[in-house]
């Protein structure tokens, strides 16, 4: 049973205090989206064995949604970060790379964007 630290309140919460929200960093496709874009947004998931970014809500705590970088195979947690973040932080990327040298982020590097 997982333990994840909520980045909003600092509580080390166990899985029963959290609710899962699936893959993180999906970009919403609205009415203007093509059928292909919308299908990808609604249904296509990476389902990764390895470094995975996912959404969790600290449901029995502060109520905030946050993101976690976790290894679906080893269960290692590379870090948790706020939902208003475009990508995982450099520190999380470094942690993941240390555990899995072959893994590379699928977003442009050196452009960590924290919004809000």
């Amino acid at each position: 049973m997982l333990i994840l630290t909520c980045p909003y309140c600092g509580v080390k919460a166990e899985e029963t205090e959290l609710s899962p929200g699936g893959e993180a960093h999906l970009k919403r496709v609205g009415p203007g989206g093509t059928a292909e874009e919308f299908e990808a947004y609604l249904f296509a998931r990476k389902n990764i064995k390895g470094v995975h970014f996912e959404r969790w809500r600290h449901a029995y705590g502060c109520g905030k949604w946050f993101l976690a970088a976790r290894d679906t195979h080893t269960m290692q947690v590379y870090g948790t970060y706020k939902a208003q973040t475009a990508h995982a932080t450099d520190e999380i990327v470094a942690n993941a790379r240390q555990a899995r040298a072959e893994w590379v982020p699928d977003w442009p590097q050196g452009s960590e964007a924290v919004v809000g």
Binding site: R57, G63, W65, G116
Partner: peptide, 14 residues
């Protein structure tokens, strides 16, 4: 309530 907070926190946080 969770659904509303999800969209407010994760999509339209501004």
């Amino acid at each position: 309530h969770g659904h509303m907070e999800d969209w407010l926190q994760c999509e339209w946080w501004d």
